[in-house]
Write a protein that binds this DNA or RNA. Sequence first.
RNA 1: GUGGGCGUAGCUCAAUGGCGGAGCACUGGACUGUGGCUCCAGGGGUUGUGGGUUCGAGUCCCAUCGCCCACCCCA
Length: 413
Amino acid sequence: MSSRFAALKGVEDILPPDSYLRQFIEDKARSVFGSYGFGEIKTPIIEHTDLFLRSIGETSDIVSKEMYTFTDKGGRSITLRPEGTASVVRAYVEHSLAMRPSPQKFYYMGPMFRYERPQKGRQRQFYQIGVEAFGVAEARMDAEVILMLMLHLDRIGLEDLSLELNSIGCGECRPAFKEALRDFFAPKLPELCPDCQRRFETNPLRILDCKVERCIEIRKDAPLVTDYLCGNCRSHFDSLLKLLGVMGVKYTLNPHMVRGLDYYTRTTFEVTTENLGAQKAVAAGGRYDGLVEEFGGPATPAIGFAMGVERLAALLKDKAAPPITDFFVASLGEEAATQALKLASGLRAEGIRGELGYGGSLKSQLRKAGKLGARFAIIIGEDELKSGLLKWKDLKKGESGEVPLAGARKLFA
RNA sequence: GUGGGCGUAGCUCAAUGGCGGAGCACUGGACUGUGGCUCCAGGGGUUGUGGGUUCGAGUCCCAUCGCCCACCCCA
């Protein structure tokens, strides 16, 4: 408690057994995403600040007040990535990946940084697992990405989630919708909460998911984005809904779901839970058909999502299980201790997991074996050295017996 | 950035303004070489930090830092 140093506000150490849960989530992601043909991409966690200004949008809260930005020794403005998509798109353009067979599909996992007040399910350094698929505009790709997300969430054992869907249109149809929204709210402006009055200027779409009761009431008859979609966006969305229906995916249409990041187009989706306090979204994503071009690449449709690992882990908290310890070698005496080391090393080389006892009486060593949850305790003392027969005990079943030193591995057959 | 709650042992928490404690956990012993149950013992603390009030502060006051929760926003 009174340690000389402490971790910074909003960042944390992830220790066993929590780290095992993180590994479990990541392992399942690698497996599921791999089966869909996605390959891992590792991008730097620092980028030129401009990258995020361009992609996320200068008026967004992330950019205006939540970025970890500093000047490096060369005088460059550097920012710790607040999200993953911008870097992947930069890499896609920088390495001319449009020249590779389409689609190009990537996943990433790692820390993101946002300077915010921490609360439940929200840290300043937090981990995301995300995917991005480039080059296909067809709604079938939207369906694939959503199916992949749902499969992963299912594989890690998450339940009671709901998938919310929306389409926020494209550069063609969204301006008209924003106009309609402004026209609708303008006469009611004085009745809106102060936050919404600000949103009216910065991002009127945000008024649609305000939590203030009065605002919810006022917006009851507000125009719906889905009524303003252009023909192409409309049919894209309809195709997606049809495909999800065919695939048996349950979803809820939420015309009030809005994205905080400027680059989204058409399909947006969120997977939410009621078990995380105010932080309901465990994963969120959508299309961003204009971003590659914005970054100087060829016009390339793309879609992706990101999951919040802390939020997934919080929902699975009880399921963190350390790996099984197969054996524990207790030894008595110097020569036996050396033999124990040789025995354990041989077993480990065969992929069998185990540990050595260090010092203390046989009793205290066995006590430790029990605490570790080891399957077998193996005992080496002077008697065993003389006879060449090891004593073993199955700590789960309580059975015990002897085995020749050279045949110890047969215990684990 | 705004608002509320909370900081005492590794953890969960007691202690009227008057000698800082318990349970769990950890280490060892009882049982010289056989875990879990039981009993005993031991190690562990500048009471988050810095000021102030007081004969005396874990307790009251101020500041600060941190944690938790909510808002903003978001994964």
